[in-house]
């Protein structure tokens, strides 16, 4: 089967994630969209691993998973902290750093 299909699926998922990040205001959903983008990238890497016949792509995907896990932990902790102080999970409320 042509691996291009996997890559294009990966691109589609990436763009959906990107769209979600740009459109959704809920911090959690925005964060999930980022996760979706990371997963799309993982898919691409696993596909390339399959195409090139080496395991390095899978290793990279594995590392992305680990890093994403760390990122989720810290990111969610930040969201909770912000929610505690501002009683809101909207990314638009976190706009003090403007102008």
């Amino acid at each position: 089967m042509n691996p291009n299909a996997y890559i294009i699926l990966s691109a589609i998922l990436l763009c959906i994630g990107l769209f979600g990040f740009m459109v959704r205001r809920n911090a959690l959903i925005a964060f999930m969209s980022v996760e979706l983008m990371l997963n799309a990238a993982n898919l691409a890497m696993v596909t390339f691993s399959h195409v090139h016949g080496g395991l390095d792509g899978q290793i990279a995907a594995f590392f992305v998973m680990v890093v994403a896990a760390a990122e989720v932990v810290v990111g969610l902790a930040i969201i909770i902290t912000i929610f505690r102080t501002r009683q809101s999970a909207s990314v638009d409320d976190e706009n003090l750093l403007k102008h």
Binding site: V91, D92, N95, K98
Partner: peptide, 17 residues
């Protein structure tokens, strides 16, 4: 130029895209 920095993460995301 400052007006570009409106403090909305989503705008920054759009610009990055």
């Amino acid at each position: 130029l400052r007006l570009l920095q409106n403090g909305y993460v989503r705008t920054y995301g759009a610009l990055m895209t």
